[in-house]
Design a protein around this nucleic acid. Structure first.
Lengths: 191, 191
DNA sequence: TTGCAATTCTGCACTGAGTGCAATATTTAA
DNA sequence: TTAAATATTGCACTCAGTGCAGAATTGCAA
């Protein structure tokens, strides 16, 4: 890695660290890009060479659920049905979630409408990503079937995170995931 | 309805009509609030008495899926399980969808990132609305069960709309809804 | 009808996000 | 060491969104 790239990484991390600290201290709206740039030791104009918008600084802190899931999916053996395979991958992810970090950033995001929207919209982007991965791996499978599988994958993860958060975050997330799956299966079987 | 309220309605509709026309003609970004206000015969400042942001004009054109579903839910008899009742309500809505309008607005929204995000975020808001309605109607039911029911309600509708649109919008939507439900049920039963 | 209170509309001035451009500084490769 | 490539910066600009205060309009009561 050349000096150029190295400096770029350093600047990038200085921007995000400065921004997150300012956001936490004085709130999102009250923090101007001017202030972030100053704290990171760059000019206002340069900030926009690193991030397209102020929102993007926050969004960049979010781990991409879609990418994670695709990676986990690739590690699963080829034996089962799409749904079965996805289910296993989800459990693997849920068991190893970096919880504390997530919650702090999440609380911050909750307070900003536009960011919250984009975060939630990301779920749908993630779903599309997963759907594409599924289509490549099971090209012969019925398309609607793959659609609902991707939908369940992202949705149940989101649902378990919600339930976990609502419950105060005491029990492990994977437990909520299992309960979501069980409820879904039995409700649909009865319905 | 007094003169005041009547005028307000008229102005509101003048704003949205002017805005949508300008958006369609010259694009979203290229249309300033200044121009919308002028076309609607009001001042720039007054525009903001009617809409909080420019995005909101577009968003306001979207029918609230959550509200629709809650209304349809209220019309269903009390006999079945939550999932069964929701399923019936969904079918009723899907059968009577005003298709053409939806598609035109949708195409416009697709082109604007921020609006698209908020539209998609609305799905999650809708899910929360439905969840609340379900909780009130079935207070004794397991919470996770109601969560997945609300999730399936909104999600399968969205999925069917997507699939319907992807297929060129020829066959009736309710057909896609049934297929989504069937795929979900059988995939989960096998998984 | 008239007068007064409650709303609504408007202009003005301001902040802050985001962009285009051209000049300057830094890094890379030869 | 030098020239090309890339990064940084300042400047000027557009436009969204907000607060405020005065003018215009509407509702209501006498």
């Amino acid at each position: 890695m050349g000096l150029r790239e190295q400096k770029r990484q350093e600047t990038l991390s200085r921007i995000t660290r400065s921004a997150m600290e300012l956001f936490a201290r004085q709130g999102y709206e009250a923090t101007t890009i001017e202030a972030i740039a100053a704290a990171a030791g760059i000019s206002r104009r340069t900030f926009f060479h690193y991030f397209k918008t102020k929102d993007d600084v926050l969004l960049s802190q979010q781990a991409g659920l879609g990418e994670q899931l695709i990676a986990a999916l690739a590690a699963e053996p080829d034996a089962g049905t799409p749904m079965r395979t996805v289910h296993a991958a989800m459990r693997r992810i849920a068991s190893s979630y970096p919880l504390e970090e997530l919650v702090v950033i999440d609380r911050l995001m909750l307070s900003i409408e536009a960011v919250q929207s984009r975060k939630q919209a990301n779920y749908i982007r993630d779903e599309k990503l997963v759907l594409e991965a599924l289509r490549q791996r099971w090209p012969m499978e019925d398309d609607m079937s793959l659609r609902v599988t991707a939908f369940v994958a992202i949705g149940c993860t989101r649902l378990s995170l919600d339930a976990w958060r609502a419950a105060g975050g005491t029990r492990p997330i994977v437990e909520y995931l299992d309960r979501a799956f069980a409820a879904l299966t039995s409700d649909l079987a009865r319905g």
